[in-house]
Design a protein around this nucleic acid. Structure first.
Lengths: 104, 104
DNA sequence: GCAACACATAAGCGTATGCTTATGTGTTGC
DNA sequence: GCAACACATAAGCATACGCTTATGTGTTGC
């Protein structure tokens, strides 16, 4: 059950901040530490959790490891959210189109 | 920051099961226990967490308390997801309409 | 080769979380 | 009133989680 990992990963405020940073573009682990007062191992562990959840993917470049948002995680959340379509208010009706595509 | 509560609430597998049950319709705390091998206080605590997160809302009816999905929680998740629109794959493009409405 | 660097992993520790049992609060119906 | 019921809260406990320091792994450039 990957959605378990996703919600657990996003439950931590630091990981959400990291994810949000990556939404602005690809960054390596050191760059991600800027602003966040956190040790290097802590960041490494957080990135490991985000990666295991499918929210982030990595790409080695020399001795740097670049991280970026993994669309798969985004899709998984969208798919989960789509299951509760019956409770979407009218202004979220547009999501119905998403569900339609995902069912295929 | 309510989205912190939302993701924390959904990080627990039992609470996700409860939420999914409620997606099928309003239920009271005892009925929600059916199938889930969990004590009455545990369920009460889970419901408290879900309610604090805005995912669920309650309605007293005599000595029963009926719980139902709170659309506010759904919208909050949708709004969060909308922030990462740039990383949605094409088949999630429909969500763009949601973002548009939410920005108003 | 080897020193410097970027990152990952290991081990240990304090706190948060989810569970249990016990008890409290509020409602129903006799 | 009071017994039965539905649910909430309190207290205590085992485990999970996030952090730290220490160390390991892999890459770069001299």
């Amino acid at each position: 059950m990957i959605e378990a990992d996703i919600f657990k990963a996003l439950a931590d405020p630091t990981r959400r901040k990291v994810f949000e940073k990556l939404a602005g573009g690809s960054l390596n682990a050191s760059a991600l530490r800027d602003g966040l007062e956190i040790s290097q191992p802590a960041m490494s562990q957080h990135l490991s959790v985000l990666r295991a959840a499918g929210l982030v993917r990595e790409q080695r470049q020399g001795r740097f490891v670049n991280y970026e948002v993994d669309p798969d995680g985004i899709v998984a959340i969208g798919a989960w959210l789509a299951r509760y379509r019956a409770y979407w208010p009218k202004r979220m009706e547009a999501l119905a189109d998403l569900l339609k595509d995902m069912d295929q």
